[in-house]
Computed example of a mutant assay.
Amino acid sequence: MDVLVTGASGFIGSHLCPALEQAGHRVRAMTRHPDSYTGAGEPMAGDVSELASLRAPMDGVDAAYYLVHSLDSAEFEEKDAQAARAFGIAASEAGVRRIIYLGGLGAENQQLSAHLRSRRAVESLLGEAGVPVTVLRAAVVIGHGGISWEITRQLVDHLPAMVAPRWVSTRTQPIALDDVIRYLVAVLGAPESAGQVYEIGGPEVLRYLDMLQRVAWIKHGRRLPVLPVPLLTPRLSSAWLALVTDVNLATARTLVDSMTTEVIVRENPIQRLVPGPTIGYDDAVRQALAARAAAAGQDPVGAGGPLPRSG
């Protein structure tokens, strides 16, 4: 198939483009800076916020992946809505047969954060112009370069002890980057996935604190001391997160708001469509650390095996 990938130079897109080529598809890699693009696929100039710029990249493609969002903007909900509408209109005008979107987990009956509400709104806005949308909903994606993973890694690296706001007890279902890419490629070859929503996750449900502890053990062979501060407000928590990691304050506030929402897989029809085991959290962490070391020309880092049980 002829496939368009938005956000081709981003965390997910930069891994999806080569995987699609390896699966035999012809890939157009959409980016705002095609002259400097060095990844897989044919670079195409385009910006999801500008409808006119989408017409050339969309022309003649069978399917389009939508992998962009505006985490670092205070007006991200409005920006994401406008971009999703424009993308859906351009896809419809070009005769694209399907849009594939990576969204966020969260039960319909939950009070979702602004970030997760925006992700959910994008699902419907992409299809307003009539193009069927396949949605994959994920929580934290574990892989080198992912924002949520980088926060976890940097907290472990930078803090001798973990100040524990309430969100560290929230349950989530992390998924390895390799599994996300496997699912994104597989649904393209499954026509029955058009118009469907799939929840995807790894094999374990963990608290954010569990994730931090296991990274500390795998990377440094130590436990991370925890200092409970249950009254730490979201505003202070996000400012603290921006201080001890390289995530900017707007992104930190958006992510902290989402970290108070439990995001786990409630239904798993993706396993019927794309069978096979998923990668466990510890192995996903080791893969992410190895990829980071390789990118820096260093030896893989890792000190601990499975985290021993306390007591």
Rank of each mutant, 00 (worst) to 15 (best):
F11I: 15
F11C: 15
I12Q: 12
I12L: 15
I12N: 12
S14W: 00
H15V: 09
L16S: 10
E21P: 08
H33F: 02
P43F: 01
R55W: 00
D59Q: 07
G60C: 11
V61Y: 00
A63V: 01
L67E: 05
H69Y: 03
S70F: 15
A74N: 12
R85C: 14
F87Y: 13
A94H: 01
Y101E: 05
G106R: 04
G106F: 02
Q110F: 02
H115N: 10
S124V: 06
L125K: 03
V135M: 10
V135T: 13
R137T: 04
I142S: 02
I151E: 14
R153D: 14
W167T: 05
Q173D: 13
I175F: 09
D178L: 09
D178F: 01
D179E: 03
L184R: 04
L188P: 10
G195W: 10
Q196G: 07
E199Q: 14
L206Y: 01
L206R: 11
L209Y: 02
D210I: 12
L212C: 13
Q213C: 12
R214F: 01
V215C: 05
W217K: 06
R222Q: 14
R223C: 13
P228L: 01
V229G: 09
P230S: 03
L232E: 05
L232M: 11
R235Y: 05
R235P: 06
R235S: 13
R235M: 07
S237L: 06
A242N: 09
D257P: 11
I264L: 09
I270D: 07
G276P: 11
T278W: 00
V285P: 07
L289Q: 03
V301G: 11
